[in-house]
Design a protein around this nucleic acid. Structure first.
Lengths: 101, 101
DNA sequence: CATTTATTTAGATATTTAGCTAAATAGCGA
DNA sequence: TCGCTATTTAGCTAAATATCTAAATAAATG
């Protein structure tokens, strides 16, 4: 969980996750979307992998990265639920009609 | 938004927010819950204030900190919604009865 | 008005992080 | 196998961060 929040702290990494939301992408294609060097991007990928937020699959000479949405979801949901934020089912289960209106 | 995620990257700060969920607390009372010095805690408070996640109110010689839940909520929800994670109203607002069932 | 209490600011240091270039690795195709 | 392409690893620097102690500020109280 700590690793996930650490990973999310950087805007580049959040953007990578966002791009990956649309489907798997190679390291190179991802890197092309950012104004930093490949090695720098590689380091960002490593942080995301460390947090288990993405998964790497070698495809020939390329590496295809894929979002692990469930990991992101679990971390975010368990955190938001800690605060009773409208993030899960839990808090919006009305016992009586209009009870929380 | 970036400031919020930066603030959430540190476990001490996340714990502070968690403690404040139960209600406002003074800087001193909060500090007592952590194994670091007052000045260090003061710096953490500053980061949280910077991110607008907490609000400070002077009460005599003490400072009462209060969670700004709506700010945390907004940041987290808008992010989770980016990913279609079951985190907000948006994705569970049925336009027609049972539309997404 | 001097003292005490609560908190922050200043100033120092150590660690971590994001970035770079250059070099190493790994797969592919001639 | 040689060379090409994709990516990572190594090694470095600069900036940011977390921490500390000591000093400054501010409010309350005798």
């Amino acid at each position: 969980m700590n690793a996930v929040f650490k990973a999310l702290a950087d805007p580049t990494r959040r953007k990578v996750l966002e791009l990956l939301r649309q489907g798997p992408m190679t390291a190179g294609d991802l890197s092309d979307q950012f104004p930093v060097s490949r090695p720098t991007m590689s380091a960002h990928f490593a942080v995301l992998r460390e947090a288990d937020l993405i998964e790497a699959n070698k495809i020939g000479t390329s590496i295809l990265y894929q979002l692990k949405l469930s990991v992101l979801e679990d971390a975010l949901l368990s955190f938001t639920q800690l605060f009773g934020i409208g993030a899960g089912e839990a808090q919006r289960k009305p016992t009586r009609k209009g009870a929380d209106k």
